[in-house]
């Protein structure tokens, strides 16, 4: 089953005197349960592509269909709601809400979705236990290590039961041990719960774990390799 369908996606930036073609007609399909890495040199269009898939930026032309919805046709407010219900985000710098505890950060997404308090508290606890932070649920981000914060970010991304999780360079700020732990955890979640993960990365360790590696260059897909598990 296709989770994402991208057709002839183009993005041109006109902010400078010279037009920059950040994306040059990308066609791509991602199925449920994929564990995909998007790689490429700096300026290849990885971040722009991820922003488009996450509905954070709008394309110049082309279509993005997520679970049957053309996200380019949604209004700004509906797009925010669509992201809330369908997309989990993991950012390079974790970006947890600093004034909320780990539990509250995970719970917050569900609170925005309108999930009942008891139910969301239980799910937030379960998710934090699942990512190995059952003993740190009441800690604020400033009291957690980078690796622990990124685990909370993964729990937060999963809390809304999204169609897929977008992770932008999730291991860029982590040491090797934390990277290994985080990747194992996400791989486990992918295997057991069929959660679709899409990473943009420079990190070879992430690439090694990925089941599919899409390489971008100059805003185009130059290779799309699937590994046999």
């Amino acid at each position: 089953m296709n989770v994402i369908e991208v057709k002839d996606l183009k993005k041109v930036y006109n902010s400078t005197e010279v037009k920059v073609n950040a994306l040059n007609g990308i066609d791509l399909t991602i199925e449920k349960g994929e564990f995909t890495a998007i790689v490429g040199p700096s300026g290849s269009g990885k971040t722009t592509f991820l922003n488009m898939l996450g509905g954070l930026d709008s394309p110049t032309s082309g279509d993005i269909n997520i679970g049957g919805t053309e996200i380019g046709k949604l209004s700004s407010s509906k797009l925010i709601d669509f992201r809330l219900q369908n997309i989990g985000f993991v950012f390079q710098a974790y970006n947890l809400i600093p004034v909320l505890t780990a539990l509250e950060n995970v719970e917050f997404i569900m609170q925005m979705q309108g999930v009942d308090k008891k139910q969301r508290q239980q799910r937030a606890k379960d998710l934090l236990i699942q990512v190995g932070l059952g003993d740190r649920i009441n800690s604020r981000p400033s009291k957690l290590s980078g690796g622990q914060q990124q685990r909370v970010a993964v729990a937060r991304a999963l809390a809304s039961k999204p169609t897929f999780v977008l992770a932008d360079e999730p291991t860029a700020n982590l040491d090797s041990k934390s990277t290994e732990n985080l990747l194992s955890m996400m791989e486990e979640l992918n295997k057991q719960e069929k959660i679709t993960f899409i990473f943009s990365t420079h990190d070879q360790r992430v690439v090694n774990k990925a089941h599919r590696v899409i390489t971008l260059e100059d805003g185009k897909i130059i290779s799309d390799d699937r590994k046999n598990e």
Binding site: G54, L56, S76, S77, I80, D81, R83, L84, Q85, F89, F91, N95, I97, P98, I109, M112, Q113, R156, S160
Partner: peptide, 16 residues
């Protein structure tokens, strides 16, 4: 500014 961007990205309406 960035934190506000994150909040909107993860699904918080601007009105909220």
């Amino acid at each position: 500014r960035k934190e506000m961007g994150i909040m909107i990205a993860i699904g918080m309406q601007k009105s909220r």
